[in-house]
Design a protein around this nucleic acid. Structure first.
Lengths: 141, 141
DNA sequence: CTCTGTGCAAAGGATTTGCACTACG
DNA sequence: CGTAGTGCAAATCCTTTGCACAGAG
C-alpha cells in the first residue's frame, strides 16, 4: 500500500489529463498510506496534518474524481459517512464481521472455492456476500 | 421477489423478537415488490401510497433494522442517498455500468469463472469488481 | 497566459434524535 | 398493561455548490 500505489494513482490522474497539484499529491499519499477504509473527513484530517493549507473541500473533490476514474470506491461500512477503498489493479475484497464490524482485507483473488478458502485461511465464518462487478453494459461498449 | 421474500423477511423479524407491526408489513411488502435498489425516500413514497399513515421515519428505522439483521444492505450507487438491496438467501450480485450507471441484477452464483460467464451471458464487459463477504471474524465466533 | 484546481462559506440533502403517543403481544 | 414501535419536527451530519483567487502546464 505504499509508493507503488501512490505513483499508480498519480500516473492515472495525469494520463487522464488531470493536473497533479500539490494538494492532490498529499491527498493521494495519505490515502495510500492509510491503506484505504477511511472516510472523507478522516482523510481530510490526515491531509491537514501534513499540509495545513489543503482544505476539506479539496479532499472531497479529489475523492470524487478518483471514484469517477474507478481508482477508489465509496462503500457503506456501518454508520454515516462513506468509506473509501482502494481498487488496486481493478479489484478489492474484504471481510466484514457482522458482530464487531471489523474489516479484514485480503488480496487473494481466487474466484473459485472462495468461501472455503477464506474459512480455512482467515478462520472467518462466511455468512453472506456481495459481489459487485463494474464495467460496461452492452449499450455502453 | 414476491411473497416468499416478504414472508422470509417477516419471519426473520419475528424470530429475532421484533414486532411485526402493520407499518413494517407494508414496508417489507413494498421493498420486496420493488425488487430492491431503492433509496429510503423512494421506499417511503411507495409505502406512503399504500399506507398514508406510515411516515418516512418508520421507513428509515425499519431499513436500519433490516440492515442490522443482515437481510438487506445499503450500497452507494452513484449520487447521494443509499440504495438498499435484498440479500436473499445470503448473497447478492449485480453489474454496475461505469458509463450509464445502470444496474443489472443476476442470480447466478457460480463463483468460479464468473467474469467469463458474465461476459458471454450478459455481454457485460467486466472491468473491476468488489467482493464483500459478511460473517464472523475469529474473535466473534 | 489560460484554464483547471482551490478555498471559503453557505446551501442542500439525507439521516438521526427527543419526546409524547399508539398499539402489538 | 407494559414495552417496543411510531410520528412529527428539529437537529445533526455529510456532501455539494457558487464564486473569486491561485497555481500548474
Amino acid at each position: 500500500m505504499g509508493d507503488q500505489t501512490v505513483s499508480y494513482l498519480q500516473n492515472a490522474l495525469q494520463e487522464k489529463g488531470y493536473r497533479l497539484t500539490s494538494a492532490r499529491q498529499v491527498i493521494v499519499q495519505e490515502l495510500a498510506a492509510s491503506g484505504g477504509h477511511v472516510t472523507a473527513d478522516d482523510l481530510a484530517v490526515l491531509v491537514h496534518e501534513k499540509a495545513p493549507g489543503v482544505g476539506r473541500m479539496t479532499v472531497y473533490r479529489t475523492l470524487e474524481l478518483l471514484s469517477e476514474l474507478g481508482l477508489i470506491r465509496p462503500v457503506y461500512q456501518g454508520t454515516g459517512a462513506a468509506h473509501y477503498i482502494l481498487m488496486d489493479g481493478g479489484h478489492h475484497h474484504h471481510l466484514v464481521c457482522s458482530v464487531c464490524h471489523r474489516v479484514i482485507e485480503f488480496d487473494d483473488c481466487v474466484l473459485g472455492e472462495i468461501e472455503q478458502l477464506i474459512c480455512s485461511r482467515y478462520r472467518f465464518q462466511v455468512q453472506s456476500h456481495l459481489l459487485e462487478l463494474y464495467g460496461r453494459c452492452p449499450d455502453c461498449q
